[in-house]
């Protein structure tokens, strides 16, 4: 039973960073990744996010399922762009070099290929960082960080406790699945997709009910131990800002500014190899 997308306690410098640092990094990194179409910057970000991912010692199985889902949506996204606007690339880069005529309105151009490659690259600059943020950040420490930033602690705590219960819900799901299988409700791959989905829905109902039961107990337990007593609270797992946090934040700020400057230097978000090429030729 793999635990998906939950915090795992490993001792790398990324794990030791404050939650706030990682969140600031993640947000700025994503914003840059979303704004820029500068292929050079995207390539740099892609390579560095893979490096960071490796440094965090995150294993593939920790994120495999989520990754597959994201890749599935990426595929839909890429196909849909071509389907609805096959000449977006030509429009952006101002040239048109046909590669392959498909049918009727649809021709595959170098510009479109380049444009969509950029989109895929954008996904891949953000995905590793996002996944890593989740599996390397201790939920409680993250809640503590949020409250340091001025977010109400009840909100931060709700997020933390939701993250904290992901493995419990997964375990519960497995147990319920087992019970239903015993009654002959097959959820294995032997069953066709539609009845299989129907059978899986049969699990959701008991899952909700046992979770509600659980919520009642936990909220009583929290109240009995004084949660919500004061406007503020202290945090056992709070981490003080360290040198590495300052360095990381300085780096991401600097990088964001630099990336924006490079991106908008020529007045367009798009890095255009076609004009440069035609200029040279």
């Amino acid at each position: 039973m793999g635990r998906l997308l939950t915090y795992s306690d490993k001792n790398t410098w990324i794990h030791r960073l404050c939650g706030v640092t990682k969140m600031v990094f993640f947000i700025l990194w994503s914003i840059v990744g979303m704004i820029t179409y500068d292929t050079r910057i995207l390539l740099f970000m892609f390579v560095s996010s893979l490096l960071l991912f490796a440094m965090s010692k995150t294993e593939y199985h920790q994120v495999a399922t989520v990754l597959k889902v994201i890749l599935f949506f990426l595929l839909i996204n890429v196909v849909a762009i071509f389907f609805f606007s096959p000449y977006q690339g030509t429009k952006i880069y101002g040239t048109r070099s046909d590669l392959l005529h498909l049918a009727g309105y649809y021709t595959f151009t170098k510009e479109q290929l380049f444009y969509e490659l950029n989109i895929i690259l954008k996904y891949f600059t953000v995905i590793p960082v996002a996944l890593m943020f989740i599996v390397t950040t201790n939920p409680s420490e993250f809640a503590a960080s949020l409250s340091k930033l001025g977010v109400k602690y009840s909100i931060g705590y709700s997020i933390a406790i939701a993250l904290r219960y992901i493995p419990d819900i997964q375990k519960n799901f497995q147990e319920i699945k087992t019970a239903q299988e015993a009654r002959g409700i097959d959820m294995s791959k032997n069953v066709k997709l539609i009845p299989r989905i129907k059978n899986i829905i049969a699990i959701i109902f008991p899952l909700i009910f046992s979770s509600l039961e659980r919520i009642d107990t936990i909220s009583n337990a929290m109240e009995l131990r004084g949660f919500g007593k004061h406007k503020k609270r202290t945090w056992y797992s709070e981490r003080a800002f360290q040198l590495s946090d300052y360095i990381t934040i300085a780096f991401i700020l600097l990088f964001s500014i630099l990336a924006m400057v490079i991106t908008f230097y020529d007045g367009s978000r798009f890095y255009n190899p076609f004009i440069i090429l035609s200029f040279i030729l």
Binding site: F227, G228, R233, T234, Y236, E238
Partner: peptide, 13 residues
Amino acid sequence: FAMENDCVPQDNM
């Protein structure tokens, strides 16, 4: 947990 809610400083906690 109870001490956190009581705003006990981290070291004492």
